[in-house]
């Protein structure tokens, strides 16, 4: 099976994945977030790493994450992002929504005709 390309990722889910990452591992820079997402997808997803930056900006504009310049592990200057309380709430609500939708569609698709 070919690795789905980033354009196959439905719009908006990238944002959720970023939020989930930050929720799970705490404040992280862009590179780290991208790597982590790839890890969490267990290699089934190959991102063009640059695409998370517009998503990060979007989340920051909506007040779901904040940013701060800091130093990375190997002493590089990098921008670190952290999830906010509003982000946590949003993540929880959207995750529940997503699960519900998946269940509904699965139910429809698997229903005996």
């Amino acid at each position: 099976m070919t690795v789905p390309s980033p354009s196959d990722v439905p719009y908006g889910t990238l944002d959720l994945m970023v939020l989930k990452t930050l929720h799970a591992i705490g404040p992280q820079h862009g590179f780290g977030i991208a790597r982590r997402i790839e890890q969490m997808a267990r290699g089934a997803l190959s991102l063009n790493q640059g695409t998370i930056y517009p998503a990060l900006l979007r989340l920051e504009q909506q007040g779901l994450i904040t940013s701060r310049w800091g130093t990375s592990d190997n002493n590089r200057r990098a921008k670190f992002y952290a999830i906010t309380k509003a982000g946590e709430k949003h993540l929880a609500a959207e995750s529940k929504q997503w699960a519900r939708m998946v269940a509904i569609i699965t139910g429809v698709l698997e229903a005996e005709s």
Binding site: H29, G30, F31, A34, Q49, Y53, Q61, R76, R77, A78
Partner: peptide, 23 residues
């Protein structure tokens, strides 16, 4: 963002460069 755009360009460059360096 409209008003402060120009200054942030440099910041973005730095951030993206850092990412590429780490890669």
């Amino acid at each position: 963002g409209v008003l402060t755009g120009a200054g942030r360009d440099a910041e973005l460059d730095e951030e993206l460069q850092a990412h590429i360096d780490m890669l």
